[in-house]
Amino acid sequence: MAVAQWVKTLTFYEILVGMKATITVLIQRIILRNRKAITLQYPHEKRELPGTYRGMIALLRYDDGTDKCVGCDLCESACPSRVITVISSEVEGEPMKRYAKEYYMDMTRCLFCGLCVQACPVDALAMTTEYEWAKYNKRDLRLNKEQLLALGDRNFPVREKKLEFQHPNVAYFNIGHKNLPPKES
């Protein structure tokens, strides 16, 4: 036992085993060519992202172009990083109905947890697969409502019908559907 240990030490056995491992990889890469690098040449090649990828957050619209958001502020209270600022207001002439007059997201603070998306009662928020949002000015990352809606338009071309047209039982919020909030855009 001790002799075997000595022989191993004298012949650098363990170092040789390690060096064999590295040279094997090199031979497989360069000579046999049966091994590929795991590197992705990023700007030239991009990963296939799963549908559940949590990228930039977007505001959605119904199929008739009206925004889904009802200005309930639940997303704002659900957000752990206080990313979202909602300034909601009543729809004119409709005291029961509210909408988000202004909607801001400070994406510099966002940690992409998705709690706002879960909290939204009307599914007005969604997470896109966009991630290349590096900016030279960090103020460009404070998104307003138009930008968020544009994100949604860009990433979700298929829009939902209004709740009351989907099924009568689902229409909890937009009760007075005859008096819709004024279209934006």
Binding site: I23, L26, R29, R35, T39
Partner: peptide, 13 residues
Amino acid sequence: KVLSWMQDRMGPM
């Protein structure tokens, strides 16, 4: 290059 070949990478490309 040699290091990247031994470590499953590509090195400068």
